[in-house]
C-alpha cells in the first residue's frame, strides 16, 4: 500500500520544500512521509561551480518539508560527473 515501502534500504534522493537535495539510505518512514536516512549527504547545486557534496550522516526529515522522494539508480548516479554539473538550485515550494 504505502508507496515508500519499496524504497526501504535503498538509496533515495529527497528534494525538500526548501529546494535542498539530500541523498541517503532510506531506513524508515511513516504515514506523514517523515523519513529517516542513513549515510546521507546533501548536494549543493550552483551555476558558478560544480556540485558540492556535504556529508550529513543520520538524518530525519519531517514529512511536511518533503517534496519528492526518488529511487536512485546507482549505476546512473555513479556515471554522473558531479563536478561538471552547473545548475541553479531548485526553487523552494511556494504553497
Amino acid at each position: 500500500m504505502s508507496a515508500l515501502e519499496e524504497f526501504v534500504n535503498k538509496q533515495v534522493l529527497v528534494i525538500t520544500t526548501e529546494g535542498r537535495v539530500i541523498l541517503g539510505n532510506l531506513k524508515g518512514f511513516d504515514q506523514t512521509t517523515n523519513v529517516v536516512l542513513t549515510d546521507s549527504s546533501e548536494r549543493i547545486f550552483s551555476e558558478d561551480e560544480g556540485v558540492e557534496s556535504i556529508a550529513l550522516g543520520l538524518y530525519f526529515i519531517r514529512g511536511d518539508s518533503i517534496a519528492t522522494v526518488g529511487l536512485v539508480d546507482p549505476e546512473k548516479d555513479a556515471s554522473i560527473q558531479l563536478a561538471a554539473i552547473h545548475a541553479k538550485p531548485i526553487p523552494e515550494i511556494v504553497h
Binding site: 518533503i66 519528492t68 526518488g70 529511487l71 539508480d73
Partner: peptide, 18 residues
Amino acid sequence: SENPHMMSVKNCFIRGSV
C-alpha cells in the same frame, strides 16, 4: 539540462501537498 538534480532517479514518490 536546466534541472539535472534528479538525473539518476527513474522512479519517484511525489508528496500530494506539493
